[in-house]
Design a protein around this nucleic acid. Structure first.
Lengths: 229, 229
DNA sequence: TCAAAAGTGTTAAAAATACACCCATGG
DNA sequence: CCATGGGTGTATTTTTAACACTTTTGA
């Protein structure tokens, strides 16, 4: 079967830059290609769009197929469409950036048929296509966005200690933050719900655990308050 | 002649939300469709991508063809790809937002074969396709962006008075600004070059004219200073 | 008893805001 | 001579930044 059109059409793909955070640093999820072009090279997960799905649905499907991930935070990043970016011909790709709670997804990424692995952002191998540019833009966007939208919570477990939250910001913003000032600011935002629970199995005093309170945040946004760290 | 592919492909279009500013308010450039679907309806300028051009080149070409505009500030906005957004079939559109110096382009927009006109944002007619959504997102983006990037200058003539600049911010942010505080802030940013020239033909004291100094701004950005109004 | 992180306030500096009058110009 | 906007400074409040010690806990 084949499909015929009056005018030529580029192929449409989606790609996802999936970020995760662990104790050390910010990681990005890559898959190793098993077919040409760029066979054996590492690349962003992604693939061709189907006709009956939206771009968002396409990237959700590809993520599930290639990496086993589901239920991730997704946001459209940019559409890359320079002629020549794919050796197979004209391919336009809609790129997304995604954030996952690494702690709750550790296993899945490696269980798929394809080789998938987390790499520290900034220590990635040579990437296929223009995926290096896509990654760079996504990283930049994350850095910018985290400062005025609480998307960082998407990278943390549901219950977390303030230390973990501060560490998140330090890793993403690439600078140290003052503990007391950070806590003051976060508390004043009033988007954290303290839980009746403290850390377990830590080799030091156990910290109070918090949960991000989406409802409070939504109300805050409506009132026009703006989040800044 | 026709083109055949193994898998079906959506058509790819580009659309542009072109903003301009005049003495009263913020305007958006629309064209009246002369063919089905939505014949007679107003729509964003745009059209099908060609195979040998990048997405950016496509939107530049379409703008020139449909509205006579050239040399405008362009930035990618979002890619709209929900099935059903175009009655002709599956069409994915890469939307851009554009800023033009209305004062220097007033005539051209109306000279084209198609009917093109500036509408106050917020007083637009019923738009074709999902162009209402695209316009809303572009407007939102403009409001957000103008606060930390000096893209507003793209809407003003090369030489302008501080009153005009303040008016620009007031129109876009939809709130009044204090004259003295505004001037203090702008002057401290040090991106305005005072000219040896004052306004002409105004029915009041003529104001000092300024020019936006791109070089100073670039240097400022590199040093990591951030623009905020 | 040591190591590691939790938790907690104050002070100084900088930035943001509120606010009013005289001046120059053209009609 | 009037209407219109140009141009200018100060005082107050708010926000940000710098900074250190005691407590808790598990190993």
């Amino acid at each position: 079967m084949s499909y015929t059109y009056e005018f030529p059409r580029p192929a449409l793909t989606v790609d996802a830059v999936v970020f995760g955070l662990d104790e050390e640093d910010l990681k990005v999820l890559l898959i190793q290609r098993d077919i040409e072009p760029f066979e054996g090279r590492w690349a962003l997960p992604g693939g061709f769009m189907h006709m009956e799905e939206s771009v968002e649905e396409a990237v959700v499907r590809e993520l599930a197929e290639e990496t086993g991930l589901s239920d991730v935070f997704l946001e459209q990043l940019y559409t890359f469409g320079k002629p020549g970016r794919d050796p197979r011909g004209r391919v336009v790709s809609v790129a997304f950036f995604a954030l996952v709670k690494l702690s709750e997804h550790k296993v899945q990424a490696a269980t798929d048929a394809r080789n998938a692995a987390w790499f520290p952002v900034g220590e990635t191998p040579n990437l296929a296509f223009d995926h290096k540019d896509i990654l760079a833009m996504a990283h930049e966007r994350l850095r910018g966005k985290v400062r005025y939208q609480p998307i960082g919570f998407e990278l943390l477990p549901d219950k977390f200690a303030l230390r973990e939250l501060q560490h998140l910001y330090e890793v993403i913003l690439e600078r140290p933050l003052d503990k007391r000032n950070f806590r003051k600011k976060i508390q004043k935002l009033d988007v954290l719900q303290p839980l009746d629970e403290i850390e377990k199995d830590v080799a030091h005093r156990a910290a109070q655990l918090f949960r991000f309170d989406r409802k409070k945040y939504q109300r805050m946004v409506k009132k026009g308050v703006n989040f800044e760290v």
